[in-house]
Design a protein around this nucleic acid. Structure first.
Lengths: 278, 278
DNA sequence: GTTCCGCATGAATCGATAG
DNA sequence: ACTATCGATTCATGCGGAA
């Protein structure tokens, strides 16, 4: 054990920053080498010629070329988290995101879950036909039913309701849904007494980033941090194929995870490199 | 104006409760006569003991027969709110709900928006591969880009975050702050100074119903109430083709809206009729 | 009249076991 | 091998009776 700890201290964390199109750069990465992919790809936008600027009609085909490589580099028990939200245009929500889910399943991915990132602090605002969009999808894909998940790492404090609740358990608590065999539940009542932490659910509350920089941070640090805690352990490797302002790399490094970030915009890559050296 | 008010007082609210298969019963309803459809259909494989449980593979086809009639009876500026959530099975989320969205668009519906109903008190449980499911979809469809929406009716008291936010407005807040991602929308936070009420967003927080009464409802009263406020005015007509325990009718009546409820289970229909008479 | 506190229950899901 | 049933696990809320 002491030996192991010593070895861990000697291990170094590597943060790779690669410039280029993910479709090409990913081919240089070994297969089955990544524990977690977490990314927020450029959103489809018909009108603008900003970063990415992929047309909604082409979005699925464009993404499948990249996700094909992601499927290759991900470890069998690794996880892929896709943070995305479809735009509203001409009064309608675009369908490219839900079409992408179906297409990724056809490509061989398992659609394990869809988390909701609830952006609590979104500004109030309104349009004639809709309210402010306060949530985004964080869609979880895996290579199979079995994957690594470290649920205890993301437990949260129990709500106030528990303070008085567990002083005395009712008879129905002991036997509920257990009419056939009442022995199993009773043993675990002790686990509840004095419990401070509970498991979270699939709705995540993170504030949005209010950055003053001239580039957009797709998500706040809490978001990749939560998924990195949940799906990796120290010295695992995290990949972000649309690394943008580098949030994923920054968090991974802080949490002692190796990481690889790819982006097609040279200015972003330069900025991340500068920040990482500081 | 006084005349109009007088007339409104003289108007009576009608609550129709119809027994049978919505696919058939809807054919007896006039076209372009409904202002709002809000419903929570039986989910695939759920409610087996009552509705028999629609198989996921058949779900889209089964629903399209009904939604075809819904499209007919809805007024041109009416709204259809579909509360639904796909189940998890064998480690994966089912795709029938997102397939249904695509199919409904093909049928002629506009997919205007997807609201998230965040259930704070979701069903407990723990599994090796997922957390508790704490949200459901409330999907908004319309017949065209133009529809009736009374946004002021659902305004909410300004939240704590805004109180603190507005005290010290940053310079970027005061000037029109064009969003960084090129979406074209801007925001002017200083407009909100002194306001007590703000518009809500597309994430709704309602607790699930877990009463000690002798029957349960699919959704809490707050849910249809919110959408009825938002999309109808007094003396409009609300339709629920899967009315179940009658929550929609009860709320509609309370809010002075005419309503029509359909269900295939005679016991539910009887129960609603009894409650409505009280 | 308020507040406090006990407590039943809710669109759940997975893995093991039985048929 | 494939399907059907059963047991294990868990959190938060609102109601109603008590203080």
């Amino acid at each position: 054990m002491k030996q192991l700890k010593l070895m861990n201290y000697m291990k170094t964390i590597e943060t790779k920053i690669l410039l280029g199109d993910s479709k090409d750069i990913l081919k240089t990465i070994d297969e089955n080498s990544i524990d977690l992919i977490v990314t927020s790809p450029p959103y489809a936008d018909r009108r603008k010629n900003t970063y990415g600027g992929i047309k909604p009609e082409k979005y699925v085909d464009w993404f499948l070329e990249i996700s094909k490589e992601l499927l290759r580099v991900l470890k069998p028990r690794g996880t892929f988290i896709l943070n995305i939200k479809e735009k509203a245009e001409e009064g309608e929500r675009h369908t490219y995101v839900i079409e992408l889910i179906l297409a990724l399943r056809n490509q061989g991915w398992f659609w394990t879950e869809e988390y909701v990132w609830h952006k609590k602090n979104s500004y109030p605002g309104k349009w004639p036909n809709r309210f402010r969009d306060a949530w985004e999808r964080c869609i979880q894909f895996n290579k199979s039913k079995k994957f690594n998940m470290y649920q205890e790492e993301v437990m949260v404090p129990v709500g106030d309701w528990a303070k008085g609740r567990l002083k005395k358990l009712s008879e129905t608590d002991k036997i509920r849904d257990n009419s056939k065999n009442g022995s199993g539940f009773g043993k675990n009542i002790s686990n509840w007494i004095g419990r401070e932490m509970v498991y979270p659910n699939n709705v995540l509350n993170f504030a949005t980033v209010c950055n003053n920089k001239n580039h957009s941070a797709a998500f706040p640090e809490e978001l990749p941090e939560w998924f990195i805690k949940l799906f990796t352990k120290e010295f695992d490797t995290v990949l972000d194929p649309f690394v943008g302002s580098g949030t994923t790399l920054h968090v991974a490094k802080k949490m002692k995870r190796n990481s690889i970030g790819i982006d097609i915009i040279p200015e972003y890559i330069e900025m991340i490199k500068k920040e990482m050296n500081e």
